[in-house]
């Protein structure tokens, strides 16, 4: 499974748990429009760290938090394994 599909599947699971209706997941979807609040995003980042072994937003001190879903996914794809 690609990093992107792992992220999407984790998002779907959290959306189900948090009773959030996810819009279609597209690269240019603003994170604000996913329906995820900061808690849901925090859960997502924690679970992805367990699954992928990385947390790109803590690794670099100056890491800017992404604003779209595409940027969010690339943050994971761009971290050297």
């Amino acid at each position: 499974m690609s990093v992107k599909s792992k992220i999407f599947s984790a998002m779907k699971q959290i959306a189900e748990e948090q009773k959030v209706a996810l819009p279609p997941l597209e690269d240019d979807l603003p994170l604000n429009d996913t329906g995820f609040d900061s808690l849901a995003l925090a859960i997502l980042v924690a679970r992805l760290e367990d699954e992928l072994g990385i947390d790109p937003f803590t690794v670099a001190e100056d890491a800017a938090f992404p604003s779209t879903l595409g940027e969010f996914v690339r943050a994971y794809e761009n971290v050297p394994a």
Partner: peptide, 12 residues
């Protein structure tokens, strides 16, 4: 507590 870049901490 587990540190979180989004909320400072989360419960695990």
């Amino acid at each position: 507590s587990r540190r979180s870049p989004i909320t400072g901490a989360i419960v695990v």
